[in-house]
Design a protein around this nucleic acid. Structure first.
Lengths: 177, 177
DNA sequence: AACATACCATCCGAAACATACTGTTGTCAA
DNA sequence: TTGACAACAGTATGTTTCGGATGGTATGTT
């Protein structure tokens, strides 16, 4: 509750998740929330969700309460400082583009066979698209808009990627004749 | 030239870049190549391009020649082992999806104002798209296909992202009336 | 009660990261 | 011709992230 720390995207994920739920949450709760939502477009290992809240609590952005018995879990909740930090981050201009890391694209770049790649990619991206569309159907977009909007971009990217690999596969077929 | 090491995506970037150019290259050369090509869909800090070739040389995937005078730069080139490793990686089935890290999407998810975000995002993504289209116009896609194909997916993602933010901005306008 | 299994939390070594710093070479004006 | 400066090339540093390993706690089964 004293040191100055630098807030990273990971920090804001913790603050943001906590802001979406009244009351307290344990790292394990956060882990579950993150993988079901934000994890789709910002991956982080679950171990971060143990280390980061402790750091934030140390700097006064969260309060920390440890259970006195049983699993002795730590319960975190936002402080006023934490809520302010989140709000001010949300208001700051963000021109930075996304960072993409696509192993398949890497292989394609270096000359891998497009048809082979397409097979694997189509399978996983079709599955992902189905998953996202499941969420979208479930949540009509009322209430908080943010998650729904973010999901829409995820769906678009998946569709685009699927189209791309379908074309690659077709093209490869034609070429081989 | 003895230890077993694990090959990471970074390793394959080094091997791949070296495979595209006859003869030798210095880390500085690699740095230039990477940022102009592969860097668009797989970021890595330039310091990695000094550390990684040394590691690869130690394990026999590259040969290392140091200049005897002047800057004493280190020149690397592929060994047969390195070439084989690259080829076998290219041939391996790759179903893993891409990993996306989008700071704007993160803010949108947690409730930032879509219109504000759109402004910054549109500026940078339009610029990026123009850059990519410049490459595409320059390179007709003859010769090596890989880089050109990879570029096509980059262009698609940019277009999709721009459409998305344009819609968000419009929607936000409507809502505010 | 004793044991097996799943759940929950944390730790830690290795890799990746950003960036500051050092030395080298080329150039151009005085 | 020289010395000041910019660009080039590489190294060193401290920090953050990664993700598997580990160990404790609760729950279910016999």
């Amino acid at each position: 509750m004293s040191d100055e720390i630098q807030l990273t995207p990971t920090s804001y994920i913790v603050l943001g998740l906590l802001s979406m739920f009244v009351g307290e949450a344990t790292p394990y709760d956060l882990k579950g929330m993150a993988s079901a939502s934000v994890g789709q477009f910002w991956t982080l290992p679950h171990s971060q969700l143990y280390a980061e809240p402790a750091r934030l609590a140390g700097a006064g952005y969260l309060t920390e309460n440890q259970e006195q018995s049983g699993r002795r879990r730590k319960l975190y909740s936002l402080t006023e400082l934490g809520r302010e930090a989140l709000q001010s981050w949300l208001g700051v201009f963000t021109p930075e583009p996304y960072v993409l890391r696509d192993p398949a694209l890497l292989k394609l770049f270096f000359g891998a066979n497009a048809n082979d790649l397409a097979e694997g990619q189509l399978a996983t991206h079709r599955q992902k698209l189905a998953e996202y569309e499941g969420y979208a159907a479930h949540d009509p977009g009322t209430g908080r808009r943010g998650p729904w909007q973010a999901l829409q971009l995820g769906i678009r990217h998946e569709r685009e990627t699927i189209d791309f690999w379908e074309e690659q596969a077709q093209q490869a077929q034609l070429d081989s004749k």
